[in-house]
Design a protein around this nucleic acid. Structure first.
Length: 423
RNA sequence: GGAGAGGUGUCCGAGUGGUCGAAGGAGCACGCCUGGAAAGUGUGUAUACGGUACCCCGUAUCGAGGGUUCGAAUCCCUCCCUCUCCGCCA
């Protein structure tokens, strides 16, 4: 959510700024509604004031043992008028809230112009794609050859976009998770956090998945309105919802491994082969909560923390600055890490690191006490995958494959697999 | 699942129909005291929206939503959460 005060007093500028992300703001409608709201609000509050004054007089009259009837006569009919005004005000506010909640975050000035992912800007590359002396296979072929990646079973158990991993490959995924958690907790200063995989709608609203992206979520049946988490960003960031963090507690740096659940509505044709796009996947997520002045430095360091995982695994990647049209709804700026996949002969997204500035914090009422003003002010929130485990597994399989179809175990992972070097 | 207690400001905590945005304390900020500090002491210290404009004024908010009433933190209903005891259970 944008700062409504700022939005109201800078409507035209905001509308102009939002064009960079291809979003049309209905300035005329908002102005008209706001004007109406103001009128109704002033009238409502005047009536409330009148009621309060008269009620006070009644109380005082009664205390003196006088007959309050004359004053009671004065307020007859006031209740209905007030109720009508209140209904109108509530309706107007609901309409405005709906509009405001659907407005995406403002972009940081450094975000490159552009409308689609073709306009994303490559910032740097690391590593050199390996020269194969044979035709490299993709992860599906490798997994099926070894009998460790089983789509027949997952289709039987559940349906499409799920996978069953067997034996050493399942172990390799577990090793990746542990490696990532260990790296971020021991070398990058993140505190490991375990969180629920089911959250309520307030949490999803706080990070911006609701109300606009309800169809992307798995909603549970039952009396409670519960959802499976689409990413650990939701429970971990919402830890600071409705709280005031002391200045000396910032930055908060948290890392969590969770499964993630996404309906993938609207991506029916895409990435149907393999485990690139699944309804359920593992992810290690980095979350930071910072003072506003620190958030862009934090975005750089958080991105480097994610990059470290790829570097230690010796996987070639590139860093992309997403263009205005490709930055997500809640983010002000996003870097994507794309890993080289020999099976696809392409760089594919494996991490997305974003600064949300105060956008999520305002929705969540997550604040810190600014020592300079003494006032509670919204914090800045950031998160990034460090990394998407399923896709990292794909990258390891494809980059470390041997001609015989077996997979060399990256050195940093061997200690997690009892020292074995090949699976 | 059964029985009971409770949810109030940054925190603790009083308040059971009217003068309550809310006693008291802690914390924090500023001042006094001090060579300096501690102690002591004085003052201040919620958020949102609106009006007016930087001086204030109004309205709302005491877990959430509804109701009763001229008037609700206080009474009634529904829901959520926390704690204690019992039962069941990984």
């Amino acid at each position: 959510m944008l700062d409504t005060k700022y939005l109201r007093s800078n409507l035209e500028q905001v509308a102009q700024a939002l064009k960079r992300r291809n979003f049309e703001l209905d300035v005329a409608r908002i102005s008209a509604l706001e004007e109406q709201r103001k009128q109704v609000q002033v009238k409502t509050q005047a009536l409330q004031n009148l009621r309060k004054e008269k009620s006070k007089l009644i109380g005082q009259a009664k205390a003196r043992g006088e007959d309050p009837q004359p004053i009671l006569d004065q307020v007859s009919g006031l209740g209905e008028e007030l109720a009508a005004q209140t209904r109108q005000l509530t309706a107007l506010q609901a309409e405005l809230d709906e509009i405001y909640q659907a407005i995406p975050n403002l972009l940081h000035e450094s975000v490159p112009a552009g409308l689609s992912e073709e306009d994303n800007q490559e910032l740097r590359r690391w590593g050199t794609p390996r020269e194969f002396e044979f035709e490299p296979k993709d992860h599906v072929a490798l997994g099926e050859f070894a009998g460790t990646m089983d789509f027949d079973s997952s289709a039987k158990l559940t349906g499409s976009r799920f996978v069953v991993l067997h034996g050493r490959l399942a172990g390799l995924q577990r090793a990746l998770i542990q490696f990532m958690l260990d790296l971020h907790t021991t070398e990058h200063g993140y505190q490991e956090t375990y969180v629920p995989y089911i959250v309520n709608k307030d949490s999803l609203f706080g990070t911006g998945q609701l109300p606009k992206f309800a169809e992307d979520q798995f909603k549970l049946a039952g009396e409670q309105e519960y959802y499976l988490i689409p990413t650990a960003e939701v429970p971990v960031t919402n830890l600071v919802r409705d709280t005031i963090v002391e200045a000396d507690q910032l930055p908060l740096k948290r890392v969590a491994h969770t499964p993630c659940f996404r309906s993938e509505a609207g991506s029916y044709g895409r990435d149907t082969r393999g485990i690139i796009r699944q309804h359920q996947f593992e992810k290690v997520e980095l979350v930071q909560v910072t003072r506003p002045q620190d958030s862009y430095a934090a975005l750089e360091s958080l991105t480097r923390d994610a990059e470290q995982v790829l570097q230690r695994l010796n996987l070639p990647y590139r860093v992309m600055a997403l263009c205005g049209g490709d930055v997500g709804f809640s983010a002000a700026k996003t870097y994507d890490l794309e890993v080289w996949l020999p099976g696809q002969q392409a760089y594919r997204e494996i991490s997305s690191c974003s600064n949300y500035e105060a956008f999520q914090a305002r929705r969540m009422k997550a604040r810190w006490r600014n020592p300079e003003t003494g006032k509670p002010e919204p914090v800045h929130t950031l998160n990034g995958s460090g990394l998407a485990v399923g896709r990292t597994l794909v990258a390891v399989m494809e980059n470390y494959q041997r001609q015989d179809g077996r997979i060399q175990v990256p050195e940093v992972l061997q200690r997690y697999l009892g020292g074995i070097e090949v699976i």
